[in-house]
Nucleic acid binder design. Structure first.
Length: 730
DNA sequence: ACGGTTGGAACA
DNA sequence: TTGTTCCAA
């Protein structure tokens, strides 16, 4: 019975790069005498020596483990060097590690689409680079193979120590090798180079996995650490997975994995093979069921997202046990500290990446005397984010009070007097999300934010190269004034109808375009930056033209990638374009994925370029647009009137914005942020009008109009998304 | 009542 | 959409 076979459907080359005990390495670079010594990084050493969050490999030999306390580590390994995480504002400050991670990402992003998966992990889609290499300088043509590449572990080939490198050399250079193996071999060479480059430029070592999808690459990167790489040839996939405990699989380390063990007696991935897709769907939902069925067979269509920057920033702290906060004053104090850090990071992000966050969310954990399971019920609250430390602090405190009232309300306790009725706060965190790129044409806004000094905004390619994740700067100072985003945006948006069913698409587009231009014109009048409004109008038009034109299907590179990646796509002719299309897992999958693909969808960008607010109330345009609002209804009890805000923050004579793209750079961030809104809107479009569009746009649109995902019918919620149904003949 | 902090994502 | 929950490191 034939089943879906990855070799015919997924010829991507994916790498997962994992830094070795990253925090330790960062500290060792700072303090070279620690190199080679058993070392661990701890945070807060006051209680039992602090908690270990990273352990060097030397220390691991002694049995030191993460999640030990510092004191325990000392017992097992008396000579261990414990380094403390920096503390700022009374809390752990991870910024040095975050920034070190950015250094690494900026190097790894040079060779292909790059996704920052965590502070110390990265996925790379090397497919294009590998195919280019195979076409130009295939491994068998190389007289010497990189030493680092020869040290690769190739599952199923050189795992048994003898003649290690020679076997790898033969595997890499085999002329009659499976095409997929050749691609992997190229991937191994490229990854080896990248890892060397990382070492050279950052002094950090890392490990890597090279495989045909993210799941396998991730598995492989952890198999030989530190500072080694592991290749998963297709022929070794089953041998790898079958004996593997399911809990080792990403996404199965938690409750779902436990459920599989308890409910189905599944302990290894191989055990999963015994269950039909239907059976798995029945028990775990249609999406999760399909996903399980697939991963048991090494199939995973998950794409590498081109994203070098985090989607949110957060700052939090726990107050365990006796340290729980019992007074509003202490809560306010800590909230202020957290907000200060958050504000600083938001400022840096805006500074370096030209992005603005639009939502602030407060999370807390609380307990109530007498109630054992009371600690998870503190509701999180969010509201529009206003820039400026004091405003963030104010809003956060308000959100907390709203949450506290609700929390205590369920206990029918008077909040009056705010004196302790037995509650305590054991965790607080403030985070900022919905981070959207500021269009490159709004430099004047940036200027406003920073007074007249625009020197640090001189980058010609915002969002492209700059991947720093908000390094610290001296705190406290707010050199910019707030950008106030409130519900007035919703009101403004309320005027605009959703996409009308009856209106032909082209008319809809035209309608959008006019709205855009109105807005643009209106703003132009106020913009002191642009002397010639028509100039800007033309720019808008230029962009429309540019963005509507079809993009090469091989051009899947993220806009976030450095420009030097682009030439890679240029020597891809029609031939490889077809190949590119064919290597997609399944047409259905590809189409769905395209929804998520930021760089490829011409229609997406076409729409997005002029949908200023109907779908998302937090478009960056509105940050500009709001200044025109005569009134606003901020979130209840939070915020102030717009008039005040305008007076406060945007003096009339201040040049406000120049909307339009002056450099042709269209930031990916925007696309990314608007994706969801768009897929939602698209569902409302009458399919009939699609026929009016040019063929290439039609094709994309049809993909959009299809449901992205089947509704989940199982009791157990699926936590896994965007996986495809394999071709399976039954 | 503790590994903590941070981030991403799905789902209702 | 917001808030909750889960997952991972």
């Amino acid at each position: 019975m034939p089943v879906a076979r990855p070799e015919s459907s997924d010829a991507r080359i994916i790498a997962h790069v994992d830094m070795d005990c990253f925090y330790v390495q960062v500290e060792q670079r700072k303090q070279p005498k620690l190199r080679g010594q058993p070392t661990a990084v701890v945070q807060y050493n006051s209680w039992k020596g602090g908690g270990l969050i990273a352990v060097s490999y030397e220390a691991r030999k002694y049995g030191v483990k993460r999640s030990m306390r510092g004191d325990d580590a000392k017992q097992v390994c008396p000579q261990i060097q414990l380094v403390q995480v920096p503390v700022a504002r009374g809390k752990a400050d991870l910024s040095i590690y975050r920034n070190a991670g950015s250094e690494v990402v900026s190097i790894l992003a040079r060779k292909g689409r790059c996704e920052r998966a965590s502070i110390d992990e990265v996925y790379l889609d090397l497919t294009d680079a590998v195919e280019a290499m195979l076409a130009e300088t295939p491994p068998e043509s190389l007289e010497t193979i990189d030493e680092e590449a020869l040290k690769s572990h190739v599952l199923g080939f050189n795992e048994d120590g003898n003649d290690f490198k020679e076997i790898v050399r033969q595997w890499i250079c085999r002329n009659d090798a499976d095409h997929r193996d050749k691609l992997l071999a190229c991937g191994a060479i490229i990854v080896a180079e990248l890892r060397l480059q990382v070492l050279k430029e950052t002094e950090f070592t890392c490990s890597a996995g090279i495989a045909h999808n993210k799941m396998l690459a991730k598995l492989a990167s952890g198999m030989n650490k530190p500072a080694q790489q592991t290749v998963v040839p297709f022929s070794s996939v089953m041998g790898l997975l079958e004996p593997l405990p399911i809990k080792k699989m990403k996404q199965l380390g938690g409750k779902l994995g436990s459920a599989l063990q308890v409910e189905l007696g599944v302990n290894t991935v191989g055990d999963l093979l015994r269950f039909s897709e239907e059976k798995l769907q029945e028990r775990y939902g249609i999406n999760t069921g399909t996903w399980l069925w697939n991963i048991a067979r090494g199939i995973s269509g998950e794409e590498v997202e081109g994203r070098l920057l985090p989607k949110s920033h957060g700052s939090g702290k726990t107050f365990p046990g006796p340290r729980a906060l019992k007074t509003m004053a202490s809560v306010e104090h800590w909230l202020n500290e957290l907000c200060e850090e958050l504000s600083e990071r938001l400022h840096s992000d805006m500074d370096q990446n030209k992005r603005i966050a639009h939502t602030i969310t407060l999370h807390a954990r609380a307990y109530k005397c007498g109630d054992s399971d009371s600690h998870n019920k503190f509701p999180s609250k969010s509201c529009p984010l206003r820039y400026g430390t004091a405003k963030i602090q104010e809003d956060a405190l308000n959100l907390f009070q709203i949450g506290l009232r609700e929390y205590l309300g369920s206990y029918r306790v008077k909040t009056k007097g705010s004196q302790n009725n037995g509650w305590g706060i054991t965790a607080l965190s403030v985070s900022a999300s919905k981070i959207v790129a500021i269009p490159s044409g709004t430099r004047s806004i940036m200027k406003y934010f920073h007074g007249q000094d625009q020197s640090h905004f001189s980058s010609k390619q915002p969002n492209d190269r700059c991947i720093q994740a908000a390094p610290s700067s001296p705190s406290g100072s707010e050199s910019y004034s707030g950008l106030h985003l409130t519900e007035q945006e919703i009101d403004l948006c309320g005027d605009e109808p959703r996409i009308e069913y009856a209106m032909p698409i082209l008319d809809q587009l035209e309608h959008k375009r006019r709205m855009w231009e109105e807005q643009d014109t209106c703003l132009m009048v106020r913009s002191a930056d642009s002397q010639d409004p028509s100039h800007s109008s033309r720019k808008v038009q230029d962009r429309v033209t540019r963005e509507t034109s079809p993009v090469p299907s091989s051009g899947t590179e993220s806009c976030l990638l450095p420009k030097q990646n682009e030439p890679q796509t240029e020597f891809h002719g029609e031939e490889s374009r077809i190949k590119h299309a064919m290597r997609s897992v399944k047409p259905q999958e590809q189409k769905r994925k395209r929804l998520k693909e930021k760089g490829t969808s011409s229609i997406l960008r076409f729409f997005q370029s002029r949908n200023s607010c109907s779908s998302s109330k937090q478009e960056h345009f509105e940050s500009v647009r709001e200044i025109k609002a005569s009134s606003c209804s901020g979130v209840q009890s939070i915020g102030e009137s717009c008039n005040e805000m305008i007076k406060d923050q945007l003096p009339q004579e201040t040049p406000v914005a120049e909307i339009g793209t002056n450099s042709g750079t269209y930031s990916l961030g925007q696309d990314e942020q608007r994706r969801d809104a768009w897929s939602y809107k698209m569902d409302e479009i009458d399919p009939k009008v699609v026929n009016e569009l040019p063929p290439e746009i039609q094709e994309e649109l049809w993909a959009w109009l299809r449901p992205h995902k089947r509704p989940n019918i199982a009791k157990r919620g699926s936590s896994i998304a965007h996986y495809f149904s394999p071709a399976k003949s039954t």
